[in-house]
Design a protein around this nucleic acid. Structure first.
Lengths: 181, 181
DNA sequence: TCCAGCATGTAACGAGTTACATGATTCG
DNA sequence: CGAATCATGTAACTCGTTACATGCTGGA
């Protein structure tokens, strides 16, 4: 019954490399944000609980002369827990919530112009996102293939790009089929 | 700042046709569940609040001899609110959470067998889902095109099918590229 | 010196899930 | 007559977001 996926993600990230709460937030922003997000207000309390359970431990590092940075590292118990999550716990399919398609559902045939407008706007948003993803891939993986230890990062980007391309293709196909009915 | 998307979805559904909380739950299960879900424990209190705001009104219908069924219908104020949501409020891109790709990210290059296992399992799940969607389309839209007033339903099914096909294609492509690195 | 960014936390609230609780109806 | 389904609600909890709150660092 217990889920709490975020704690396992934090644990997995810390296992790769000792990190602070702030560092973790950056990873969400730069690497895995396409498939999971968390605010720092959720990250810090979760780290606290993980330390209480003995899955991670922390040491204070001083930045500059005063600023305290709490760097976490994984414990043997923590490693067991990540492995259990990775290999023993089934991952159910992601449950999506997308209000865009619901708006289409509600507008229906009585307003073709509105359908077209909403599809076009969604197309614009997905194009922007896709361009942004292409640009990032260009910077990080100029060879268009994974490097040394960054296969995970490459797969996530590739998966996100694939998702956007497919969504755009569907929107274009649907636009082309207008007027419906 | 205020969002509460669920209330607009309930409102939109009730606008199409007077419905009870139970009926609404069935629509989530049968029509729009691929892109939004809600339990009855969330639906009933939301309906109550909508009635308090005067966006919907209810009448009691008797089923059999005793069972009370509360059928809601939309008010003029409610219609205004749906329209405002549909046409004036921007719909941001859906934010996805998918632990499957994160597991791939964490496993990385050190265990090719595990990567293959997890991809194959995910492939199995998406194939099942896709077959299920095909079967439903066959039953509801045997002509493979939208009918009379069911364009919204058709678009949702079509979008869900497209999503599953694309995900499967990506999984197959990634499996074919193994071993990585 | 000022400002963006580094760094960490808590509080309040809203959204969503699971469990608890009850009773009627319909069909085999 | 029994089981699945129809029908409605509340309680307790977890998850997630926004806002509040504070202070340091590094570079222009």
């Amino acid at each position: 019954m217990k889920k709490n996926t975020l704690q396992y993600i934090l644990l997995g990230l810390i296992e790769q490399k000792g990190m602070s709460g702030y560092d973790l937030k950056e990873v969400f922003k730069n690497e895995i944000g396409e498939f999971w997000q968390a605010e720092h207000s959720q990250i810090y309390p979760t780290l606290k609980k993980l330390e209480e359970k003995g899955w991670i431990s922390s040491t204070i590092t001083i930045v500059g002369t005063k600023l305290e940075k709490k760097v976490y590292s994984i414990t043997p118990l923590g490693k067991e827990q990540v492995n259990d999550w990775l290999f023993n716990q089934p991952n159910e399919l992601a449950s999506f919530k997308d209000e865009f398609i619901l708006k289409l559902y509600f507008i229906k045939e009585n307003d073709q112009q509105a359908i077209q407008d909403i599809l076009t706007e969604q197309q614009r948003l997905h194009r922007l996102k896709l361009e942004h993803l292409y640009a990032r891939r260009e910077v990080i993986f100029p060879e268009k293939k994974a490097l040394n230890g960054d296969i995970g990062h490459y797969l996530i980007l590739d998966h996100a790009i694939n998702r956007e391309q497919c969504t755009l293709t569907w929107i274009e196909r649907t636009l082309a089929s207008l007027p419906l009915e």
